[in-house]
């Protein structure tokens, strides 16, 4: 059990890293949801030019590797005189990049909403904004929840890339522990398991939400 005695003193550091990973994940999930919803609404209701702009955004952010995006912002923003921490750079880029995927998932949900809903809303005198906010988005979310879940699992895994811009999250904490204890295999193997547990928990939560959101739709 020498591994346990070796790693014992580092458990607080690992816990701190975990908390940073959790915080950056939570903030980015929220951010990407906002970005993605805005993009999806613009792409679905905004007319041809807005839809085209949204498509270009989505294609660009989906087809450029995340590491390149993060370096672009991390090294580029200070050139523009914007100095923000690695944490907030990470949240910003994750929100923008994952937002592109989220937009696709929500757009698919929005196009799935039946035309009758729109007619009924108009008959009740709802404005377009009210109709989208109160009826179409909630209905779309029911369908989109499951794909969103796997996107957010992916987002949690992607936070590990933020270790390259010096954010002291779980992977960076493990890197320090591995180089101090000279036990990289055990440390990274433990990390592999930790991430698997984390993402498994996330998918369980999303599954619960999916079941709850669709509880009135008996099949």
């Amino acid at each position: 059990m020498s591994f346990l005695s070796d790693i014992g003193p580092f458990i607080p550091a690992l816990w701190d890293g975990f908390l940073t990973t959790a915080a950056v994940s939570a903030a980015s999930i929220l951010g990407s949801f906002v970005v993605g919803t805005a993009l999806a609404v613009v792409a679905t209701y905004g007319g041809r030019i807005a839809a085209m702009a949204a498509t270009i955004y989505i294609e660009a952010f989906r087809n450029i590797s995340f590491l390149v995006l993060i370096f672009f912002f991390y090294f580029g923003l200070p050139e523009l005189g914007i100095f923000i921490s690695a944490f907030w750079t990470g949240v910003l880029v994750l929100s923008l990049a994952v937002g592109a995927y989220v937009a696709d998932a929500i757009s698919a949900g929005l196009t799935n909403v039946q035309g009758g809903v729109k007619d009924a809303a108009t008959a009740f005198g709802l404005t377009t904004a009210q109709r989208i906010r109160l009826l179409e988005l909630p209905l779309a979310l029911r369908v989109s929840l499951r794909p969103l879940g796997s996107l957010f699992v992916n987002l949690i895994l992607t936070t590990s890339i933020l270790s390259t811009i010096t954010l002291n999250e779980l992977t960076n904490a493990a890197k320090i522990i591995a180089s101090t204890t000279f036990r990289p295999f055990e440390v990274y193997f433990l990390l592999l398991i930790l991430y698997s547990i984390l993402t498994y928990l996330c998918s369980v939560i999303v599954h619960r939400m999916h079941v709850r959101a669709n509880r009135f739709l008996a099949t």
């Binding site: 895994l157 590990s160 890339i161 390259t164 992977t171 493990a174 991430y195 698997s196 993402t199």
Partner: peptide, 9 residues
């Protein structure tokens, strides 16, 4: 379900 970076390390 684990990051590629960790697998590489």
């Amino acid at each position: 379900n684990s990051p590629v970076i960790v697998q590489l390390f």
